[in-house]
Design a protein around this nucleic acid. Structure first.
Length: 469
RNA sequence: GGCGCUGUACCCAAGUGGCUUAAGGGGAAGCUCUGCAAAAGCUUUAUUCGUCGGUUCGAAUCCGACCGGCGCCUCCA
């Protein structure tokens, strides 16, 4: 399978270090606020990458960091007159709630920055010993010129960056490009003891330290949003490879932005919706299908209309899933087992996903399957149970397990929770009777009543069925 | 200024040299089924891929120029 590697700007054959094991590190949230729907794109797409690797038989160890010490957290804690810890814990809880609602699978481990200060100090000390880091009165900086490969990920050259001159001027730094490894404590800030005095770690150092500690010196995949390429990931490479001679990351993956009216959605521009706001209006499945319908690397515009269209697509898949559930319940092994190119659908799905996770084409394969499956059910009233189960399994393995755009367990729950099935069946029988007497007025009245209960009635050759609106 | 992404139907979007005289979803229109609906199926909806040139037997796909949109270079998924 091929993965586009930001480092080489090419699609490369994916060869993990120790197959079938795969190590994957994803840059997680800074927990100073609820995350927005743009952030969700990275979380969901990395989730899909991880799920597909598992589909392929890899054993993935997936680690996502939680940045729980950072300027914005400190600022908020001062504003609210509480501790940084209280702020970060509040938003960590919120993060897990939202991630669960988005049906993003939990990482194997969520290391917190504040639990790894010791490891970060060690790493900074190593850099200092090697003459790469320098201490200026309690602030420690990374000397960018001491690392030959600086700029290799983002394609930047040190000279040009300096010419750019948008870098903040800090008299203490040797060069404006040098970045903070350790920040000297200011009054009222949380701090830790270190060889350089009280202070707190810089932002970039945490990922180097935690990735190495939990996944080893070389990680197979390191992922994050496009905006992390520079400086964050560039600096991670400088830190980790400055200390360890071996390669820090084999495959760098970066996710495109979610835009609003062609502008990047971001907190600073104020043009964002939180994930929880969006999930109040749309299903997680619609959000996931919406993201899956475009390639992970490019930009994508967000709007409620687009999510509504995605929901229509989800409904189409759900409809088929419900047909499966109903027909499987009724079916046995006395029936027809027609020709069906199931193997081709699997092959197609894998071929396109193997090509750098081409989820839009994978979605297309699923919709092709939906049409073909509907057709075979239409044309054959008595299919065998095993045949139907095989078809259902395709949806379960692709649409559910990999893309997460449908969930069979939710279907059953939706149908059977908080509904008086007996009463509904009784109303349906009355309606059938009315229909037989051609008392359509009464039949429609009953249907309207069921509509008011939130049910959609569908007549079919085998009798009426119902589903939730 | 440097680096990178991007322009395909009414909307979203895949495809990066012949398998595609362009997938899939939404929308729209017609038909089948239906008491009517709904669902599903079938059919139709880009001779054309920002513009202009070039390379090639052959280009949406390669090259050049131009026009337009966006991002990073500062915290940001």
């Amino acid at each position: 399978m091929l993965i586009y590697n930001t480092l080489t700007r090419r699609k490369e054959e994916f060869k993990p270090l120790n197959p079938p094991n795969v190590t994957m590190y994803m840059c997680g949230p800074t927990v100073y606020d609820y995350f927005h729907i743009g952030n969700s794109r990275s979380f969901i797409m990395s989730d899909i990458v991880r799920r597909y690797l598992e589909y392929k038989g890899y054993k993935v160890k997936f680690v996502m960091n939680l940045t729980d010490i950072e300027d914005r957290i400190i600022k908020k804690s001062n504003e609210q007159q509480t501790t940084a810890e209280a702020i970060s814990q509040f938003y960590i809880d919120a993060f897990f709630e939202d991630i669960e609602k988005l049906k993003v699978r939990k990482a194997d481990f969520y290391p917190k920055a504040t639990s790894h200060v010791e490891e970060m100090i060690e790493l900074i000390s190593d850099l200092e010993r090697k003459g790469i880091a320098y201490n200026v009165d309690g602030d420690v900086f990374y000397n960018v010129k001491k690392f030959d490969g600086y700029g290799k990920l983002s394609g930047k050259k040190i000279d040009e960056l300096e010419a750019g001159a948008r870098v903040e001027v800090n008299e203490q730094k040797n060069s404006p490009l040098d970045f903070s490894l350790w920040k000297k404590a200011k009054p009222g800030e949380p701090s830790w003891d270190s060889p350089w005095g009280k202070g707190r770690p810089g932002w970039h150092i945490e990922c180097s330290a935690m990735s190495t500690k939990h996944l080893g010196k070389t990680v197979d995949i390191h992922a994050g949003g496009n905006d992390l390429i520079f400086p964050h990931h560039e600096n991670e490479i400088a830190q980790s490879e400055g200390v360890n001679e071996n390669q820090f990351v084999k495959y760098w993956m970066h996710f495109g932005f979610l835009n609003i009216q062609n502008e990047k959605m971001s907190k600073s521009l104020g043009n964002f919706f939180t994930a929880r706001d969006v999930l109040a209006r749309h299903s997680a499945e619609a959000v996931r299908l919406f993201f899956s319908q475009t390639h992970y690397g490019g930009p994508l515009n967000f709007s409620d209309e687009l999510l509504t269209s995605a929901q229509k697509g989800v409904d189409k898949i759900i409809n088929l899933a419900e047909r499966f559930e109903e027909s499987i319940a009724k079916a046995d092994e006395n029936g027809i087992q027609p020709e069906f190119a199931l193997k081709n659908f699997y092959n197609e799905f894998e071929t396109v996903m193997d090509d750098d996770f081409n989820t839009p084409q994978a979605v297309a394969v699923i919709f092709d399957f939906v049409r073909a499956a509907n057709k075979v059910i239409d044309e054959n009233p008595n299919l065998t149970k095993s045949f139907l189960l095989e078809l259902k399994n395709f949806l379960a393995k692709t649409a559910e397990d990999v893309l997460g755009v449908i969930h069979f367990a939710d279907l059953r729950r939706d149908l059977h929770s908080s509904l008086d099935i007996d009463a509904i069946n009784k109303m349906l029988e009355e309606r059938e009777a009315a229909k037989k007497e051609k008392n359509y007025k009464l039949a429609d009245e009953i249907r309207n009543k069921l509509n008011d209960l939130g049910l959609i009635i569908q007549d079919s050759k085998t009798g009426p069925t119902f589903k939730r609106k």
